[in-house]
């Protein structure tokens, strides 16, 4: 069952990623990206991270992608003029060679060393909200507080960029 779910979610996610890149309309790209993120939530669930899986749907597929769709629909029509043009054939190798090189490296590595299985047994309740919260407010409290400051700075920055310049408080 795990095998089937892995291949199902993995294929869905790769398909979503590819369609995001290939589709010319930004709106269609965004919808495919939501598809990929929902599939990623399935992968997280398979990796015994149920809390992260739910947050992936809520935060990523929900909040962040709604922000993207909102901006796309506010700004422009579906397809940009520049994306109708084909890429110059001379540039194709420059785009294709780095990913292919990485894939060949990974393939040879797997051929030489085989695959690595999960060996460590998991404690009960691994990845549950309680478990993650205990870590977040215990061992990683400093990181948690720092990321909240980073978010605050991001909010202020986004507001400052979006506002008209002469109305900024320090002008």
């Amino acid at each position: 069952m795990e095998t089937f779910l892995f291949w199902f979610c993995g294929a869905a996610m790769v398909l979503g990623g590819l369609m995001t890149v290939v589709q010319r309309s930004a709106v269609v790209s965004a919808v495919w990206l939501i598809f990929a993120f929902v599939a990623a939530a399935g992968i997280f669930a398979l990796l015994h991270a149920p809390f992260v899986a739910i947050l992936q749907v809520l935060v990523y597929a929900g909040a962040i992608m709604v922000l993207f769709l909102f901006v796309i629909m506010m700004l422009q029509g579906p397809v940009l003029e520049g994306e109708r043009r084909r890429m110059k054939p001379a540039l194709w190798p420059a785009v294709a060679i780095p990913p292919l090189a990485v894939l060949v490296l990974v393939g040879t590595r797997i051929a030489d060393h085989g695959t690595a299985a999960f060996t460590t047994p998991l404690p009960a309740g691994f990845g549950s909200p309680t478990h993650v919260a205990e870590l977040l407010l215990g061992r990683y409290l400093l990181a948690f507080e720092l990321i909240s400051i980073a978010l605050l700075v991001a909010i202020i920055g986004a507001l400052a960029i979006g506002k008209e310049e002469r109305k900024l408080p320090w002008k």
Binding site: V52, L55, V59, Y60, L67, V132, I147, A158
Partner: peptide, 23 residues
């Protein structure tokens, strides 16, 4: 579970990046 905590950090960073980038 430390990995899960840092996935949450990554969510926050992705949200901040999307907000500022789109602004």
């Amino acid at each position: 579970g430390g990995g899960h905590v840092f996935i949450l950090m990554n969510f926050a960073i992705a949200a901040a990046e999307a907000a500022i980038g789109l602004a």
